[in-house]
Simulated assay, not measured.
Amino acid sequence: MCTFCFDGVNRVGGSGQAFGDIRYRPDASVVYEAFFTFLDHEFRADDWSDVAVVPMRPNRPSGC
């Protein structure tokens, strides 16, 4: 399982920051699990099948 964590992402054009993490399998192109918190509200979903994971570099080796 790979995890991309972020913390202190500023809201564009307003106040507040977001944080959370996105988890995905390295051999799959869909999100396994994700959590986002913005202005003290947590957002999550049980089904992420319609959200794709796109590699940042096309020559990235398999794995995280």
Rank of each mutant, 00 (worst) to 15 (best):
residue 40 D to G: 05
residue 50 D to S: 12
residue 5 C to W: 10
residue 4 F to A: 13
residue 54 V to K: 10
residue 38 F to E: 02
residue 6 F to A: 09
residue 55 P to D: 14
residue 9 V to E: 12
residue 53 V to C: 05
residue 2 C to W: 07
residue 30 V to H: 07
residue 57 R to M: 12
residue 14 G to N: 04
residue 27 D to C: 03
residue 9 V to H: 03
residue 17 Q to I: 09
residue 1 M to F: 09
residue 53 V to F: 06
residue 44 R to S: 15
residue 44 R to K: 09
residue 11 R to T: 13
residue 3 T to S: 15
residue 20 G to N: 01
residue 10 N to L: 13
residue 5 C to R: 15
residue 11 R to L: 06
residue 52 A to P: 04
residue 61 P to G: 11
residue 58 P to I: 08
residue 34 A to I: 06
residue 19 F to G: 10
residue 52 A to R: 15
residue 29 S to Y: 04
residue 53 V to K: 02
residue 46 D to A: 12
residue 29 S to H: 06
residue 26 P to L: 02
residue 17 Q to W: 01
residue 6 F to D: 06
residue 42 E to T: 15
residue 53 V to I: 15
residue 15 S to Y: 04
residue 19 F to L: 11
residue 55 P to L: 13
residue 34 A to H: 01
residue 29 S to F: 07
residue 41 H to A: 06
residue 30 V to Y: 08
residue 23 R to E: 13
residue 57 R to I: 12
residue 53 V to E: 01
residue 34 A to P: 02
residue 45 A to W: 03
residue 22 I to Y: 01
residue 19 F to Q: 14
residue 2 C to E: 05
residue 39 L to W: 02
residue 37 T to Y: 01
residue 36 F to P: 00
residue 59 N to D: 15
residue 34 A to M: 14
residue 15 S to D: 06
residue 17 Q to A: 10
residue 53 V to H: 01
residue 59 N to S: 14
residue 14 G to P: 00
residue 39 L to Q: 14
residue 5 C to Q: 15
residue 19 F to H: 15
residue 51 V to Q: 04
residue 46 D to Q: 05
residue 8 G to P: 04
residue 43 F to Q: 01
residue 32 Y to S: 09
residue 56 M to V: 14
residue 17 Q to F: 06
residue 7 D to L: 07
residue 49 S to P: 05
residue 61 P to I: 10
residue 11 R to C: 05
residue 42 E to M: 10
residue 55 P to E: 13
residue 10 N to Y: 11
residue 31 V to N: 00
residue 48 W to C: 00
residue 18 A to R: 03
residue 18 A to M: 05
residue 3 T to G: 08
residue 20 G to L: 01
residue 14 G to I: 02
residue 35 F to C: 02
residue 55 P to I: 07
residue 26 P to C: 13
residue 47 D to K: 04
residue 9 V to A: 14
residue 30 V to S: 11
residue 6 F to R: 07
residue 51 V to F: 08
residue 7 D to H: 12
residue 19 F to W: 11
residue 36 F to M: 12
residue 26 P to W: 07
residue 46 D to P: 00
residue 64 C to G: 10
residue 41 H to C: 03
residue 21 D to R: 08
residue 55 P to Q: 14
residue 3 T to V: 15
residue 47 D to V: 05
residue 7 D to N: 14
residue 58 P to H: 09
residue 61 P to W: 07
residue 43 F to Y: 15
residue 18 A to W: 02
residue 18 A to Y: 03
residue 50 D to P: 00
residue 27 D to L: 05
residue 57 R to S: 13
residue 38 F to P: 00
residue 46 D to K: 07
residue 13 G to H: 03
residue 34 A to T: 07
residue 19 F to I: 00
residue 58 P to G: 06
residue 12 V to G: 00
residue 6 F to V: 06
residue 12 V to D: 07
residue 16 G to T: 00
residue 49 S to N: 12
residue 9 V to K: 07
residue 11 R to Q: 11
residue 47 D to W: 02
residue 2 C to T: 09
residue 26 P to Q: 05
residue 60 R to P: 01
